[in-house]
Design a protein around this nucleic acid. Sequence first.
DNA 1: ATAGGGTTAG
Length: 423
Amino acid sequence: MATMASSRQLHRLRRLSTAAAAPAPTAATTSAEAAAPSISISRAKSKLRSEFDPDKALHIYSSVSKHYSSPVSSRYAQDLTIRRLAKSRRFADIEALVESHKKEAQITQEPYLCTLIRSYGIAGMFDHAMRTFEQMDRLGTPRTVLSLNAVLSACNASKLFDRVPELFGALPGKYGVSPDRVSYGILVKSYCEAGSPEKAIEVLKEMEEKGIEVTAVTITTILDSLYKNGRAGEAEELWDETVKAGCVLDAPAYNVRIMHAQSLGPEDVKKLIQEMSDAGFKPDTISYNYLMTSYLKAGMMDEAIGVYKELEGNGCKPNAASFRTLIHYLCKNGDYEKGYKIFKESVKVHKIPDFLTLRSLVEGLVQKKRTKEAKGLIRTIRKKFPPNFLNAWKKVEENLGLALAANDNDASLNLEEDEEATG
DNA sequence: ATAGGGTTAG
């Protein structure tokens, strides 16, 4: 299974090499919709999380979408379905699905229509998003800044960062809608994503002149971009100016600073977490993950495990990244037994790490002759993962079978037997 | 009811 970071990179590359809206040669059909039984949104969410087959994802989503209640409650399910379909380049199916929603009675409600614009954005189908925005008069949907923001956002989501400033200039006049602080936030994001945080800072000046509030969200976008472009000095400057201007920075803003401090060392991270607390913002899982990671990078494994163990006491829960990072570094350090313990905890809360981490864990366990643990891990993986993951996993198992035959005479990993034993 | 921060290592 691809990691988040690399799949995002792949997505970017893919977008550059293909016309996003070009339909895949698969048949456009939403026939699943007719047959889908009704299920609750929360049930759909949990099913969608583990469903990697886009057809099945579509089926699950369709079964819930007709019970549409509000944009918020179905957003997660909708986004996930679109992402699955887009990843498989099923653009014709996405179009069929989204267009079918334009026939719903709620289409005259702007928030509902915005979810459709959003879906096209997530799929990288910006021209469809734009067309939906333009169709609003015909569909009888009143147009406010909400849909303006939706279409600008879809432009960013489609990675067309250069087009956002252009649309920001043209659309308000053309459609008689004034941009608000969110619109400006989207504009700022586009400059940052295009690698020009200095242009984003100029936007801040324009906002001040026009009396539009600059929020912590907008500042955080720019801080992140400055740090990522190696401009830490300018980031600190912006932070100080923002505080001086009386804008309240919050937990996500602190986390951007902590992200940067992480590369400086655990002491710097600890100091910032303290500063964050003192300022009245509760450090969250993301903050502590940075602390844990900085310990791991410094080879301070016990301290890192300490951070992990204290998460709960600090009112936080480990997330998928906590497990993955911790197990990854424990393996790198040869602490496979400790890694296995953490792995078992990740299974309990349904946050199993990615393929590569699991591979290095099981290989390490076998190498250390912890056959029982290795078998336990393999049993769990077979139960928990979808078939396309298991195809790659099978190769890992096969290689281990060879390694075992060569090094270990009595403990062979007879996987067929194991499979039967667990039923 | 729209805009922000995350995870390995190569």
